[in-house]
């Protein structure tokens, strides 16, 4: 162990002490809520850097954060190309189609309680399955380009969104529905003014789960065949060339895309379901 490793460990202990004090003394303040996790994240990075440098870990096994950052800065155009191929075309395209189809199916099924009772358990069952396994089949059907990735994403996001939407459409209580009846509201009116708004919290729950699934589906499907760009393709070829810094850069992109996508849905949820107790804080 060299001085870098010891310095990192010393930093860790100091940061831990600071975090302990801050959390116990000012834990309810707003700045502490941001400061404590941020310091923890920084500590992890410092520890990573120090241990990799201090223990002389070869960069083909685990590159240091600084190396990854340098590689990331070097290959921004490459990463952007992969990002647009995998995330913008494959994942987003599939996400929109899959979620749209699920919502429409849920509304269609909603008129028949019989189908609803049948579809919910089946949908729940499918939602728990390792659906990512259909990737090789869909790649065979739709070819190597982004269409097959979008198809995998459609299948993966469909059931979680469907189950949540069906549950959401059933979420109105009888009193509210009776009220709509006394207003002699048509099916369309009660759907638009009562049931759909009431289903929104459930729908967004499903949509948020689906964001991560979409990214997973789009990237994993590329392992079964892809054109010569895309994040999954880049990861598997970079591993072959032992270019671990590039692999980690792709992971950083995936992480940023994942949390950004999720954050975007959470933001939309906040504006759409501002009336819901969980949003009023």
């Amino acid at each position: 162990m060299s001085w870098q490793a010891w310095a990192a460990i010393a930093f860790w202990i100091a940061a831990w002490a600071v975090n302990g004090t801050v959390a116990n003394r000012w834990g309810r303040r707003k700045w502490a809520r941001i400061f404590v996790p941020a310091l923890f994240g920084v500590t992890l990075l410092v520890l990573w850097q120090g241990l990799v440098k201090g223990l002389n870990v070869p960069s083909v096994i685990l590159p240091a954060p600084t190396q990854i950052a340098a590689r990331f800065a070097d290959s921004v155009p490459l990463l952007w190309g992969d990002f647009s191929q995998t995330i913008l075309k494959g994942a987003l395209g599939g996400y929109v189609i899959g979620c749209g189809a699920a919502v429409l199916t849920a509304i269609a099924v909603d008129r028949s309680p019989f189908l609803q009772r049948g579809l919910l358990p089946v949908g729940n069952f499918f939602a728990a399955l390792p659906i990512v396994g259909v990737a090789p089949i869909l790649v065979m059907w739709f070819g190597f380009d982004w269409q097959s990735k979008a198809a995998v994403v459609v299948v993966m996001v469909f059931f979680p969104v469907l189950v949540n939407m069906v549950a959401g459409l059933a979420a109105t209580d009888p009193l509210q529905r009776d009220l709509m009846k006394t207003y002699s509201a048509s099916y369309r009116d009660s759907l638009l003014r009562l049931r759909l708004p009431a289903a929104m919290p459930f729908l967004f729950n499903g949509l948020k789960i689906a964001t991560t699934l979409a990214l997973i589906g789009a990237i994993v499907a590329e392992f079964f065949g892809s054109p010569t760009r895309g994040m999954g393709f880049r990861i598997s070829t970079a591993v072959g060339q032992l270019d671990m810094a590039l692999v980690w850069s792709e992971i950083v992109v995936a992480a940023l895309a994942g949390s950004g996508f999720y954050g975007l849905m959470a933001l939309i949820e906040k504006t759409v379901t501002f009336w819901h107790p969980s949003q009023r804080g």
């Binding site: 959390a23 923890f40 990861i235 949390s259």
Partner: peptide, 27 residues
């Protein structure tokens, strides 16, 4: 049991859920 641990780890634990970890599993 530890407030410091709660405040440091939990936000990351929740944020890490949004990262497609499964996609990098083969690597």
């Amino acid at each position: 049991h530890s407030r410091a641990m709660d405040m440091s780890v939990m936000p990351w634990a929740i944020a890490s859920q949004t990262i497609p970890v499964l996609a990098i599993a083969p690597m």
